[in-house]
Amino acid sequence: MKVTILQFPGTNCEYDTQNAFKSLGAETEILWHKEESVPSDTDLLVVAGGFSYGDYLRSGAIAKFSPVMKAVINYANNGGKVLGICNGFQVLTEAGLLPGALKRNESLHFLSKHHNLKVVNNDNIFLEKLHNGDVVNVPIAHHDGNYYIDEKGLKELYANNQILLKYCDESGNEKNPNGSVDSIAGVCNKERNVFGLMPHPERAMEKILGSDDGIKMLQGFLEA
């Protein structure tokens, strides 16, 4: 299992992500954004979190024109598995690989804390280790995590089971930290090979750091 992790100027979660997948037994490689191809032995491509290009213009807006992104789009369109975490989710929506967009948090504050998430659809390789309704506790750390999609798009997400995770309290009741439409924290594409979420499963790998729920989430990719 080989995990390739993208690095743009301003990315800051690539080493946490590498550490997380290494601890699960995967081989990893960090790929600089100037590269024009995705290593051919890649089983999973991760667009890691951070602040690519300083979030200038809009979060993820400049990164989508980095040389590597053409290869990423090809990789995804050919069925390659892609996971975008936080800024990576923003990059994937900007690049048109995932539906919707991420707006400024409704409170206008940067949010950095642990949050509970409810599994909404486990009918995909990412969350297949979990059950629908399971609650996981994972850190969030974002300023632009307010997921927006228009009504028509939202209906499609529901119809195709594309909503992966929703923000909730510890009993699984919806609880919305940032104003996201229907408390959505993560989605996938129709084909179920591109995944994006604002929370950071790679920061929830050890109990001593508050939670190891990220293991159950990321493990899905390893056994696929």
Partner: peptide
């Protein structure tokens, strides 16, 4: 292509 995100 760049200056606006026409989704929002």
């Amino acid at each position: 292509e760049l200056l606006a995100n026409t989704v929002i």
